[in-house]
Design a protein around this nucleic acid. Sequence first.
DNA 1: GCCGTTTCTCAGGGATTTCACAGGAAGCGA
DNA 2: TCGCTTCCTGTGAAATCCCTGAGAAACGGC
Lengths: 251, 251
Amino acid sequence: MTITSPRGRTEMLRPDGSPVRVLVVDDETSLTELLSMALRYEGWEVRSAADGAGAMRSARDFRPDAVVLDVMLPDMDGLAVLGRLRRELPQVPVLFLTAKDSVEDRIAGLTAGGDDYVTKPFSLEEVVARLRGLIRRSGAAAVRSESLLVVGDLTLDEDSHDVTRDGQSIHLTATEFELLRFLMRNPRRVLSKAQILDRVWSYDFGGQANVVELYISYLRRKIDAGRPPMIHTRRGAGYLIKPGEPGDAPR
Amino acid sequence: MTITSPRGRTEMLRPDGSPVRVLVVDDETSLTELLSMALRYEGWEVRSAADGAGAMRSARDFRPDAVVLDVMLPDMDGLAVLGRLRRELPQVPVLFLTAKDSVEDRIAGLTAGGDDYVTKPFSLEEVVARLRGLIRRSGAAAVRSESLLVVGDLTLDEDSHDVTRDGQSIHLTATEFELLRFLMRNPRRVLSKAQILDRVWSYDFGGQANVVELYISYLRRKIDAGRPPMIHTRRGAGYLIKPGEPGDAPR
DNA sequence: GCCGTTTCTCAGGGATTTCACAGGAAGCGA
DNA sequence: TCGCTTCCTGTGAAATCCCTGAGAAACGGC
């Protein structure tokens, strides 16, 4: 079931109408807090645990629909936790967090089912998108929602990563794609550069804030070129995307 | 009966519409968990047992449509379990898991009845494919046809392992075949290198992640040569397969 | 056991993507 | 209109990602 909330975003709900539940397991509290905030903002109910024991307790009485699990934990390693979780919650999809350099000690066979993983440092957009994908495909939320975002004549498919405007296919780089996804998931809403930076860039990004301007510029060139513009600047506030009005001068 | 679920994949169902049931018997819990996840993701209902006694209990009250059975079990050996299973579930097909070096002809005798086997370490794609074949042929799921995957003018027959593009037969090696099957079972969906590695390569593969790139390269040479390309790279995300657009430049 | 086939590692090179920097354009208030 | 601030975007360097040839090792059929 998908409903549109008053604030204009689509939310995932369980069959009984209650919000989707996500359990976050990581020993870095700054990370669990960051994630919890982002996931709550999605309208999900979140509980977090800092170690394997806490994770098992939460699994039992919180009964989450999805789990975010750091594979490196202090008391028992992530794999042990995974095993116990699987026994407690056999159906629940897991999103693994893993360090960049452990790409080689790749989580062999962990993503067996519909599971997925992201490498640290990640962007919140990425984590949220993957979680949505996992939950959607697991059917836990009975949200057989489409993977297609539509704003005016602009479409973005989260499964195939295809983007089209007015039927014409548009090639985007990975960062451009995430930025556009974030805009399109919040249509007609002003998003500040800080918000965009926090969501689309990885949490340890230390660069210049004007990358956002730069990527907005890239997107405009690809999305708005020769058409009524959909990406608008609110000076001093941020950017927003909305369907192009035919009356508007093409860009 | 075969239906296409909202997530775009075909599922097997029993004549009464309930999901197919599979019993997994192995004493290595990490393996039963791995398999359970993968099989659940197929939309099947799974129960697992760690020994012969548990297997018999599950056979009686779970009434599975297929059994995955490790021939090496702690309490009684797989053959004894098999005999008891056969008495309890005379019609049910069995997929044997066997160590690489075990006597092949003994297994050959076992699989005479239409059963099948895979050697450890296996890939999840392989186990799932074999199981699908067994179930399809047993008639439990009332699915008789449907061994043919089709994407555009590309076809892959899971029974005969024949692959054709535009009517022309294409020879693939075993690994190439499994990779293509995985792509074709998830058309128009971006699959990350990690997902591909976890699904197509055996669970204990510890090698370089760029084998995936290599095999994509092999596949392209055979599938896309001189034709509109069907295998596409999404830089920073993964690969996907989709029907070639006639307008696309041939490769 | 031998020989063709298949799998996989390694490494170079090429193409793409990301990002910093900086000059210029555009908006805004007085 | 002027001056200040904010935003836009060209340029280029560096990093990253991907492709593929060559060859070693493992496998399989006979």
